[in-house]
Every structure is written in structure tokens, then in C-alpha cells.
Nucleic acid binder design. Structure first.
Lengths: 147, 147
DNA sequence: GATAGTCCTTCCACCTACTGGAAGGTCAAG
DNA sequence: CTTGACCTTCCAGTAGGTGGAAGGACTATC
């Protein structure tokens, strides 16, 4: 199967599939003309990867999941552990974002949003006393908060 | 003020401050020896930036907020608009993550997590029939879901 | 004056997970 | 034989930094 075909059937862009080959998630063979030639198994792996990625598993988690996927003797505990730790991160992120939403929501409500310069949002970002009572999240866990 | 001093007072790593200079968020002057020399105003701007970033505003939003911060004639409506659109994105992200959490939570609960290979999580990632009834999020809004 | 330690500088590479685009080879249809 | 769709590789860019190397500057101590 050509990459275009596999792309259509798996739902992954051809670019992404080439990238997955680059990082060693799939190893399609090559034809004489240099074109990649995918087997049905590889199509399944790519579809699997697409689903796992859409559930937010990282590439490295996907790599592990893929090896478990191929190991029919694997224990479900191994799979569950990955899913659980991923779930924990998702839930933590939700909490962080909810706290953020509360803060932002409060600021937005308190801001008149008129043509005068007085603005609680700016005051909050500016005034160190306000900031000290608040409790700004710092650094590590909140990186890119929203995409 | 030297960068180390400003770093300590603003809570931003020196690396980050240099980066912010690179992208034009601050313009400290230089001493004869080549060291950056920050004014108190620049320290305030950096602190402001740190707070805005910790609330999840993007660098470009921070740039706009910073110009509003410096414009004492600005209207609060301009500030509010930015905060509101940011809030909307945060809330949308929360919804997406909650849907994800529900899906993952369901899978995790249904997985025995023992040493046998049967695993609903794997089944879900593998079986296309299951997947069709599900409704996997795709592509754009869910990029890197969790950091 | 020499030396050690800390601070500062620039520059380059790396992170995630792709995506866009250029330059060029291949294949099937008309 | 040409056109267009498909394929290839390679390079660069995204957001927002972070890590590290190589080297200059400053301060304290001997």
C-alpha cells in the first residue's frame, strides 16, 4: 500500500506517517522506485497510534503501548498503569485550568470593559500586593497552558 | 540592575529574561562592559510579564497587554477583550480534557489490571468497531493535550 | 599580582509533535 | 509527449523556553 492510501485509511496525514517512520514507530519496506510499501499490519499500527494520540498519550507512551499491542502475552496491568498515569495528568491539568478559569472569570467580571482606563485585570497583573495575596502558579507544571 | 538581581526579584530565570529581550518584550540598556542594565520600570514589566504568563496568556497576548500596561489612556474594554477570549479558550480546553478524562476513566475502570492479557483499553485502541461508536477527537484543537 | 569563584556574555542545540514548502523523481491517462 | 497526481528527501518553522559550552568581567583572598 502506498502512503496516500494508508493516510486515507488511518486518518493520519502522510507527513505524520513519514515522521512516525523517522522516529521508529513504523518500518515500512520500500519498493524499487523508492516508494514506501505498507502492510495491513502497519496500517493497523498507524490507526492504533492515531487513536492513542487522540486520547492524548505522548509519543513515548504510544511507543510503549505499541509494544504492548504487539505483545499478545502482555498483562493488562501494564497497559492500565500507563492509562492511569496519563489520566492522573489529565485530571491535574483540569484542576489547574479550573483554578485559572476561576481567577480569569473573576477578573473579567470585575472589569467594566468600558472606554475608561480603570481595569481590575491590569491592577491584578501590576500590583504586587494583590499578587502576593493571590498565589500565582509558577514555572514547571503550567507551561503552555492552552494550545 | 544586573540580570541576576532582576531575575531574583521578578522570579523569572535569567535565560527567560534574555529570551524576552530577544523577542523584544524588554529593551535593557548596556553598560560599558556589555552587561545588561535594567531600570526599575523594566523590572516591573518583567514581573508583569511573569504574572501574565502564569495566567496562561500567550507571548503575543502579553505583548499586547504590555502595550496596554504602558498606555495609561487605554480603555479597560481592550484589556477585558483579551482576557475574555483567553478565558474562552481555557474553558474550551477544560471541556475537552473532561471528555478525555471520562473516556480514560471508563477504560481504566473496565480494565482488570491483572497479569492476563485481556484489556479493554487495548481493545478500544485496536478495534475499529469500538472506535467508530466512540468519536475520537481529531487534529486541530487537541494537539498536545497535556504538558 | 595571581587565583578562585561567581556573574555575565553570546551562540548553538534541544524539547514536543508535527507542518509547510521547495526541488525533483515516478506513474497512469489521454 | 505532456499533464497531473503522487511520491521522495531535505530544510525550516512553530511556542516558549532550557541546557550547556566557551569565554570575558568582577570581587575577594592570599
Amino acid at each position: 500500500m502506498n502512503i496516500g492510501n494508508v493516510s486515507e485509511q488511518s486518518g493520519l496525514p502522510a507527513k505524520t506517517i513519514r515522521y512516525y517512520e523517522d522516529i521508529g514507530l513504523v518500518q515500512p519496506s520500500r519498493r524499487e522506485n523508492g516508494y514506501r510499501d505498507f502492510t495491513v499490519q502497519e496500517l493497523h499500527k498507524l490507526t492504533f497510534l492515531g487513536r492513542a494520540r487522540s486520547l492524548g498519550f505522548s509519543i513515548e507512551e504510544c511507543r510503549t503501548l505499541l509494544s504492548l499491542y504487539e505483545d499478545h502475552e502482555r498483562s493488562s496491568a501494564d497497559v492500565k498503569a500507563i492509562a492511569q498515569s496519563h489520566l492522573a495528568r489529565v485530571d491535574q491539568k483540569i484542576e489547574e485550568l479550573q483554578a485559572l478559569s476561576a481567577t480569569l472569570g473573576d477578573l473579567v467580571v470585575r472589569c467594566h470593559g468600558d472606554d475608561r482606563p480603570d481595569c481590575p485585570i491590569m491592577d491584578d497583573l501590576t500590583d504586587s500586593d494583590l499578587a502576593e495575596t493571590r498565589n500565582y502558579p509558577t514555572g514547571t507544571t503550567l507551561g503552555t497552558l492552552v494550545n
